[in-house]
Design a protein around this nucleic acid. Structure first.
Lengths: 347, 347
DNA sequence: GCTCTCATGTAAACCTTTTCCTGAAAGCGT
DNA sequence: ACGCTTTCAGGAAAAGGTTTACATGAGAGC
């Protein structure tokens, strides 16, 4: 191996700066900056020359320097409780698609608990200069955080819950849930279990209470009593719901149907049924919410929400907010999808 | 509403700079910088005072300025073909977990085609100064890109394929596939279909050929002939594989078993079987690769790979690489998991 | 000939980090 | 005790690479 270079570092090609481009194109750095960013007041011939030189030198503005000087980052921070979860991955996918098209970078953060939430808010506050705006998916704020965020002029879009100061995209959780439960009632079910999401105080999660409200409303409308004994709560995963589901179903007066707050939880309930030798839908009807990718194969009746669309819409609201647009609250429609996990109650 | 402030902007609290902290603490900015970042040569008393003042002023170093001055970004770029897909979401989740702990930011990019791939490489090249390093998941490079990346001194970790200049984490794809097919053969199956991933030239994807090789090897070892007529290819989604699967299975001499290159593709095959009124496993055995979250519920026999672990390991290799560590290739083990989608061939 | 517009240049600003540099205090040999 | 070398806390100022406010000068339009 020839030793023509005395430096020991891997020979990183010396980077061209804006000054090099200016020199090579015979203009000032200001003109280069303007030409490259497509600003007005640059002669066509000059712009073309600059662009050609920049391409040849593989020039690329240092983002850090550009951000420092311009004050804007062209970056959006996205916080989700767990990026590996189906729901959040779909939402992030929708966000990413829009953001990529708009030329924004996406900074992804997992927010597993309240400490991380406050860290996220702190770091992505306008003063932090890490991003131009942020999206929070199913991460609700406690009132004092929300107030502070508003006071700080935080540019924020929320998905899953709604806070007055910021744009949001949600579904009508009460209606979604009641629609699912009404369906069960219409099939003759009278004892309907609830598999709820655990409501972590630290996350102050607002979706579970609303879905529970829908569950109650449907009962009330049909003149049915609910039995708190068949209301349970589990982490929003298949495994956790399976374990909890087993105790709910392992009883002589088990429910004939279960409404689960998410499809993944519904999967857990179905696994629990399987564990106990119960057949779905003969012995147990199950409904979920989401329309998960695998719900069709599994045959799960569910209330569909366009999860990808949730994210895409959030990104759009965010871009609007960045451009100084007004705060908007969007409610995405839901739809009951009938499959084979629900059937009339056996008499 | 009192009009004590004449500015029309939402009153963003004036941001404290390092100079304000220095002034308030009665030290120089250099000392503040050192104190906050835990560098040596700061007296304990001084450090505490600075930290207290900084906390009170809610001081936070401007990342752009810090990057510009220090040259390092504490950011990692992650490129995946589609962030909404189960597999990639899991990998990203594993990466995120490690990176969060190490205090790095994660910049997520979708790389749907070759144009985006080259854009990703260009923007995240060391000269680009956008990130300290990057991870590419199932996005293979064409030789010229790879050569250029090495020449540029790109800090890169690859998941899913292996390139000599960079650390990588993979599984033994040939063995994983042959293990699945051997299982089918051991159950007496002699006509085994292959549901392969589409091999997009633009992505130069290397996994499909290796899994196909495993499929061939298992046949060869058992002295069986393969029938190209029951080899198909589909996009790596459930829906696409379902459509293709229907044509494979809708024939009198359909296979008695199918090996799918991923669980999601296996789900598609199962849906196709369902569409045609075939029962799994009585009429058709199906094996996949991954151990998807829903595979247990669906009862899919599969070759498990720890997808989350793939990502976590990649992040670790990356952190090693950033600290100047050596290039390593890690192969994560796989394991055949027997479930109810496979059964002995009916005679 | 005067004003206006538009292309372009100059230099300040953005906010840290980091490289010397300076003293003071501490350790040490005699 | 004394002078020497080290060590260490801390400061001043340069460096990092853009963007942008302001200034300038040349043509164009009237």
């Amino acid at each position: 191996m020839p030793v023509d270079e005395s430096r020991s570092e891997p020979a990183v090609r010396a980077r061209a700066g804006i000054e090099d481009v200016a020199l090579a194109a015979g203009v000032s750095v200001a003109t280069v900056s303007r030409a490259i960013r497509g600003l007005p007041n640059v002669a066509v011939a000059t712009r073309e020359r600059v662009l050609a030189v920049a391409a040849e030198l593989r020039y690329q503005a240092d983002p850090a320097a550009a951000r420092l000087a311009a004050g804007s980052t062209r970056t959006v921070a996205v916080g989700v409780p767990d990026p590996a979860t189906w729901f959040f991955a779909k939402v992030v996918g929708g966000i990413e698609r829009k953001l990529l098209a708009a030329g924004y970078d996406l900074l992804l953060s997992g927010i597993p608990d309240a400490a991380h939430r406050s860290r996220f808010l702190y770091m992505n506050a306008p003063g932090g200069r890490r991003c131009d705006a942020s999206i929070l998916v199913n991460v609700a704020l406690v009132p004092e955080e929300a107030g502070e965020a508003v006071a700080d002029g935080h540019r924020l879009v929320t998905v899953g819950f709604r806070y007055e100061g910021f744009s949001s995209v949600t579904i009508d959780n009460v209606t979604a849930a009641s629609r699912a439960v009404e369906h069960l009632i219409s099939l003759g079910h009278r004892r309907i279990g609830l598999m709820g999401m655990v409501m972590d105080n630290a996350m102050n999660f607002v979706v579970p209470p609303m879905r529970r409200q829908g569950y109650l409303r449907a009962h009330e409308a049909a003149g049915l009593q609910v039995d708190p004994g068949i209301e349970s709560v589990a982490n929003s995963t298949s495994d956790a719901s399976r374990v909890i589901g087993r105790t709910m179903l392992d009883s002589p007066d088990r429910p004939s149907a279960v409404f689960a707050m998410s499809d993944e939880q519904a999967f857990g309930v179905m696994l629990a049924a399987q564990d106990l030798g119960l057949n779905v839908p003969e012995d147990l009807s199950v409904v979920g919410v989401d329309d998960h990718d695998q719900s069709e194969l599994i045959g799960l009746t569910t209330v569909r929400q366009g999860v990808d669309e949730l994210g895409a819409m959030a990104a759009e609201l965010l871009l609007e907010a960045i451009e100084g647009g007004t705060v908007r609250h969007v409610e995405v429609p839901t739809e009951l999808i009938l499959r084979s996990s629900t059937a009339p109650r056996r008499s």
